[in-house]
Amino acid sequence: MLIFTLRRLNLFIFTIFLLTVLSFSLAFLFPGDALVNISGQVSANQEVLAELAQSYGKDQSIFNQYVIYVGKVFSGDFGVSMISDLPLLDVISTLLPATVELSLVALLIAMVLGIPIGFIAAIRHRKNSDNIILSIAMIGYSVPVFWVGLMAIQLFSIELSMFPSAGQISPVYEIERQYGILLIDILLSDSNYKWQAFSDATSHLILPAAVIALAPATIFIRLARTAMLEVLETPYIRAAKAKGLSFAQVVYSHAIRNALIMIVRHIGLQFANLITIAMITEVIFSWPGIGRWLIESIYQRDYTAIQIGLLVLSSFIFIVHILSDFLYAALNPLARGKKYGS
């Protein structure tokens, strides 16, 4: 396990190094002055600029500048937004939890729906229900998320008035911010309208989370199906059957557990995919998350925000990936021996 940890750590450091190099070089590749791009101080006067140049080590070699930049990033000095002039660390720490909340709920929905349906498909292999599940999964995977999002708003918000169409919570509720994860903050708050707020926030969350979950859920269906089919072919299942266990007992006690391990391995990979979908969905549902903010920053040519946003978002995805690798390794001792990270 130690070797495995070291390997992953190595991979982590190397990836973060590449990401920071990319982010750092973007300051030079974007149009305009590199110092302004990296600090976000668009309306600074000469004195402030001179001070900034000093603090970013503009008189030193490129390598030293990079080291200073990395130091600043890791100490939380992300610069300010070129458009709103707000410190980017504050902006990101407000927005990232909203995205995390949305993505985790979406992931949960995708898993809760996708995996059991996949198992059912595998158990009913080559039967009608299998074919139907596979076809639906294929359709669900193929429809573009922006279309699904808009249709969901049209149907569930406007026609049926079941769910709200935009935002994280109705603006009538004032929730004091503690952890940034809204549902938790609501439960911790001492507002008189706590439960109303909670149910309102939940109903705001359902629709975007379901839209995001659609594509990953279809992938989980196919993963679960393949995993289950593979497991059902293995000798120990045959042995279990030979012992005289019923098919249901075999599936419950042996097959599901072993199939799940194979799926856990893919959760990390799916998470990256999910974040990409979440970014688009955030725009459609006006969700106050980092993806919507990043897309707006791109529209507004807020170069400082783009650099830092990319760095934070990709690091975040990568960390989740590594964590899921650890989870997999903890569950499955065989994986610890694998030499290369993926």
Partner: peptide, 18 residues
């Protein structure tokens, strides 16, 4: 359950104008 829960948020919403 989720579908029903949206109907309960009337009171503060009703005391507010958006």
């Amino acid at each position: 359950l989720i579908g029903c829960s949206t109907d309960e948020d009337i009171s503060l919403r009703e005391k507010s104008i958006i």
